[in-house]
Amino acid sequence: MDQELNPQTDQALNELAMLICQALENDGEMLVERQDGLLKTLVMSGHTWKSERTVMEEVERRVKDQCGESAMHRGGALTSLTSQMGVKLQSLARWESKSPSEETPSKPANISSATDA
C-alpha cells in the first residue's frame, strides 16, 4: 500500500493474513472466530482506503508472503476467503458509518429511566 500504516492496522492485516494461511493449510475455525474483531479494528483504526478491495488485496499479498506455496497452490480458495472478508469489511464499515435516524425516538437506557421509580 502506498500509505504508511499505523502499527494497529499493520498488526490487524498481519493477523488476518496469518489466519487465512491457517485456514488454507488446516481448517478455518480460528478465521471464523477472530476475523470480525480484526475487521472491526481495521474499520475503527481511522485508516481509510478508497475501497475494501484495496484492503483485501493487501491481505492477499501478505498471505502470499507469509505462506507462499500453500497460497500459490490454493489461489481460488484464497480469492474466495478474501472476497468473503471484503464483503464483511464493507458491511461493517457501512454499519459503523450510519448515524441514528432522527425519526426514531430515543429509548430509555434502563427500566429506571423508563419509569418514575
Rank of each mutant, 00 (worst) to 15 (best):
M1Y: 01
M1A: 10
M1C: 07
Q3L: 13
Q3C: 09
Q3I: 12
Q3Y: 10
N6W: 03
Q8K: 14
Q8S: 10
T9A: 14
D10Q: 14
Q11W: 01
Q11F: 01
A12D: 05
L13R: 08
L13A: 04
L13S: 05
E15R: 13
E15Q: 14
L16V: 04
L16T: 02
A17P: 01
M18I: 10
M18H: 12
M18K: 14
M18R: 14
L19I: 04
I20L: 10
C21T: 06
C21S: 09
C21H: 04
A23T: 01
A23H: 02
D27S: 14
D27R: 15
G28E: 15
G28P: 00
G28D: 15
L31V: 08
V32K: 14
V32S: 08
V32T: 11
E33Q: 15
R34S: 07
Q35P: 00
Q35L: 00
Q35H: 05
D36Y: 05
D36V: 04
G37I: 03
L38A: 09
L39M: 13
K40P: 00
T41C: 05
T41H: 07
L42K: 12
L42S: 07
M44A: 06
G46I: 03
H47W: 05
H47D: 01
T48P: 00
W49R: 11
K50Y: 02
S51M: 03
S51K: 09
E52L: 00
R53A: 02
V55C: 02
V55T: 07
M56T: 03
M56H: 06
E58V: 06
E58S: 09
E58Q: 05
E58W: 06
V59E: 04
E60P: 01
R61Y: 00
R61C: 00
R61P: 00
R62F: 04
R62V: 03
R62S: 02
V63S: 01
D65A: 11
D65R: 12
Q66K: 14
C67G: 03
G68M: 10
E69L: 12
S70R: 13
S70L: 13
H73A: 09
R74E: 02
G75D: 08
A77H: 09
A77I: 07
L78Y: 01
L78V: 05
L78K: 06
T79V: 03
T79N: 14
T79H: 09
T79F: 10
S80A: 10
T82C: 06
T82P: 00
S83E: 07
S83C: 02
Q84Y: 00
Q84R: 13
G86A: 10
V87R: 15
V87W: 11
K88I: 03
K88C: 02
K88M: 11
L89S: 01
L89I: 00
S91K: 13
S91L: 12
L92D: 01
A93P: 02
A93I: 02
R94F: 07
W95P: 00
E96M: 11
E96S: 10
S97G: 10
S97E: 14
S97V: 00
K98T: 08
K98I: 11
S99Q: 13
S99C: 03
P100A: 08
E102G: 11
E103A: 12
E103D: 15
T104Y: 06
P105M: 08
S106W: 08
K107H: 05
P108V: 07
P108Y: 07
P108H: 05
I111A: 11
I111M: 14
S112M: 14
S113M: 12
S113N: 11
A114G: 08
A114R: 13
T115P: 04
D116M: 13
A117L: 15
A117S: 05
A117N: 13
